[in-house]
Design a protein around this nucleic acid. Sequence first.
DNA 1: TGTACATCAGTGAACGCGCGTTCACTGATGTAC
DNA 2: TGTACATCAGTGAACGCGCGTTCACTGATGTAC
Lengths: 251, 251
Amino acid sequence: MKATQNARERARAQLTREIKEEARRQVAAGGAQQLSLRAVARELGMVSSALYRYYPSRDELLTALIIDAYDSLGAAAEAAVAGAGVAVAEGGTASVRERWRAGCRAVRDWAKARPHEYALIYGSPVPGYEAPPQTVAPASRIPVLIGGLLAEAWKDQPAGNQAEPDRPGGRGGGVLAALPGRLAEQAEIVAAAIAPGVPLPVIANALIAWTQLFGMISFELFGQLVGSADPADDFFDYAVEQMADLIPLPA
Amino acid sequence: MKATQNARERARAQLTREIKEEARRQVAAGGAQQLSLRAVARELGMVSSALYRYYPSRDELLTALIIDAYDSLGAAAEAAVAGAGVAVAEGGTASVRERWRAGCRAVRDWAKARPHEYALIYGSPVPGYEAPPQTVAPASRIPVLIGGLLAEAWKDQPAGNQAEPDRPGGRGGGVLAALPGRLAEQAEIVAAAIAPGVPLPVIANALIAWTQLFGMISFELFGQLVGSADPADDFFDYAVEQMADLIPLPA
DNA sequence: TGTACATCAGTGAACGCGCGTTCACTGATGTAC
DNA sequence: TGTACATCAGTGAACGCGCGTTCACTGATGTAC
């Protein structure tokens, strides 16, 4: 409340940020295992025990980085999806498919620019580290974003989210495949949470597209594509388009 | 050549195996970072420096584990694909699609039984560790296996691997999409190496299916599906089927 | 405005730990004649 | 069959390193009267 107290508090907030930023630099340079409280303190010209005034443990600092990474990725994707509308539209709006493309590319660009931060959130979990519940909300920004696109694509459809009209000659035998029991329940829950009004098979296919997106990016960053789809730019764009067809998103 | 020398050599081979097995146990229990030469030696009742008679460094031991993991996974998938033929056939042969299913399930089962070994080969790379060239061949057993399935599915097709006949009403506008330049080259190289005679768009879609397979498994093992497609059994089977349609594999 | 007190940031030493790797060595196993 | 020599597995001590975390402390900043 008082100005003087605010001065102390501002100093504290400032240092808290600086610690996190130095920590992020170390993770960016060498991965999560390279994060060392002593090294962070050294870099900041403090003694290592002083960090404990700001973060109660190494794991809490890691958690802060993880949350930031999810938020940073989510924000980048959201901006790209929103921006796609603006870019195209001098009056019109970008199609859902165009925004899907923009979002996917933004996720990949973010990941390629920060491979170790990407690994921090989508790589193998650090053994002994348990992701706390506060990471759940930031982690769900991408699914929420995708759900929003789906909801918008289906907002003018008739209700009754059970089945699509038969589409003769389509892949899979002419109808969108019926969902096996457990998946139908799960899709229903997902739909209720982030994509109301969207048919369940569309939700299921979007789940596929979602895992595909991150599966490709992980393969690219972790070196599995060397010898085949590397460099992956064209492959990525192609797959993004195939996923849009699969879901399907309106062209 | 002599029997006595063979005795010494047999002892050496035996211990080499035991070291690797104890190391694998440690990785299975706590991930690659938990692998400690000193702990391995302790468990085997030796002094840590003695291990250097068998593996010149920790990294070489890790490499041996990585190669074994790729080989173990490859063998499991190969056996499942071959076994699917045997299982169905008391005279007939399982369809390519059935073998694709069997292979995918085998990969997932293998991974779920050994999450840390899976992470060793498909998780984020250990910083500072560079995968040596000897890992390439074992790592390619899965792609080779998939390529073989494709080649078999297309073995009776007319030559000319450029385009599929127009399939009216199919997804994506009625023709298999043309491949962007770089991807076409890459698909050609892949086809030449592991799937001769297979149309390039099929190769590209198989690359999607391949990244999808491991993307889903990674998401499942690394906890990203919690709250949506978890447990993932039905989702997995559904996606495997969708990928078979996408490639497309004959039903 | 000034003094007594409370809060809090930062210090420095220490605890207890484990690691990969090197090196000179002992003693057993195997080889050559 | 027996002896001299070479090979090699395993030992034990040491090097040099870094880590997370605790704790009693000093001294500066802020608060209350």
